[in-house]
Design a protein around this nucleic acid. Structure first.
Lengths: 235, 235
DNA sequence: ACACATTTTTATCGAATGGAATAAATGTTA
DNA sequence: TAACATTTATTCCATTCGATAAAAATGTGT
């Protein structure tokens, strides 16, 4: 936690609750309106605290934003970490192609749950989508990204492509192919603003989420199998 | 043009040039920082006009934003309209499955050119990505979207899915499947902020753009063929 | 050249913003 | 209970913001 006046190693439980409440409110508001579209007063009012509490807990608006990032990262890793762990184990072993593909689809499914399964999920996901930082370095630092769930997903996909194609696909093409493969699911997240236009509804839960998972699994499997080495030499 | 003090039916050429210059600057700045992250003074300074010129030409900040939207919509339709026209003709005729798939991939390729082929393209595309409006109705009205290139692409994809599957895919599943198919390309656009992280470079031009097109065509073709009615009954 | 139209410019406004400083209220522990 | 720690709340600041009104400058047509 950057520069806040509050000390984390000796705080009261009440302060911890207030801090968490502020973060949840900020997540929702930043997610809906972006960093610059929300004032510290907006956040404070909705969290039921006076505005200077934000300086007390987070030092400044950017510190609050950074705390939101950390919160979302943690919950994402919580949600998709186990499936990623399993897939990374498969990749490090002599697993069959079908096991790899199946493990990969399981990871995508855990991502889908994280992104869509609940209102809380939607709030976090919307925050992820609306990442606009007030500095030139609007992005997560590369090293931080490299430890996050998105990077691990990407790297696993590259690994599977290399396995399936027997090394005949260039590193560059593998990277691009991985982005395209994952785009089948991620595009639903990126398109949240107008899901109602393309799907006729804007919440993907229950049966709809199951359908989404089925579609993504089918298409991902098709694409992976199309990459297998002994397949269609003219491809 | 909404409510501006300037009259379009009787303006000078000089005014037209100034207006266009303001729009191009605003596109770039809004695309980079979002609506709330850019002040009217920022835009005016970079366009080389005093701030009240924005009120003169566009009535207010939102009017300028709306003009930017209109500009991007027009250029998108310019870029992808011909390929969409052709595909819609194919869909209205007895074209073969391969002709449909090929026509669809041609449309995706024209989208890729629009999104990535030039610095101007990147500016426009970044603006599209950062659509945050200052009102609750942050979105393009549904009727306006329905006339845009994204909607036409989506509807063509649904049409092709219906054709290939012989009507055995539900309307709801077709819609979702279409989003996933198009996500293979669109995700590159949505991920522009961190393309450097996933690909190792952040400009997709020249050979890289050709590779992207090849990958998208290959995967889209695989997925469409996987939808064909007489294929794999156990699928 | 002059009258009129359009565009640019200057000066100003009220409101909102992120934040600082300080005091008051509440919690914890001996 | 009192001393100390933490948290909450009030007051205030300087700056920035979108926008208005009016004047000055420039363009157009007769």
């Amino acid at each position: 936690m950057t520069g806040a006046r509050r000390k984390t190693d000796s705080g009261y439980a009440r302060g911890e609750e207030t801090r968490a409440r502020i973060i949840q409110v900020a997540l929702a508001l930043f997610g809906e309106h972006g960093f610059d579209g929300v004032s510290t007063r907006d956040i404070a009012a909705q969290a039921g605290v006076p505005a200077p509490s934000l300086q007390y807990y987070f030092d400044n608006k950017e510190g609050l934003y950074a705390a939101c990032i950390a919160d979302v990262q943690a919950s994402a890793m919580n949600a998709v970490g186990p499936a990623l762990d399993n897939l990374e184990r498969l990749l490090a072993s002599e697993a069959s192609d079908n096991q790899l593909i199946d493990g990969y689809c399981a990871v995508l499914e855990s991502f889908a749950d994280f992104l869509f399964a609940s209102p809380d999920a939607a709030r976090r996901a919307l925050f992820i989508k609306r990442r606009i930082m007030p500095m030139k370095s609007a992005l997560m630092p590369r090293e931080q990204w490299a430890k996050g769930p998105g990077a691990r997903l990407h790297n696993c996909c590259i690994g599977i492509i290399a396995r399936l194609s027997g090394g005949s696909t260039s590193e560059e093409e593998s990277r691009m192919t991985a982005v395209a493969i994952n785009g089948q699911l991620l595009t639903f997240h990126f398109s949240r603003d107008h899901l109602d236009y393309v799907l006729g509804y804007d919440e993907i839960t229950g049966d709809r989420l199951a359908m989404l998972k089925r579609i993504v699994r089918r298409q991902t499997t098709l694409v992976f199998k199309g990459l297998k080495r002994p397949s269609k030499p003219q491809r």
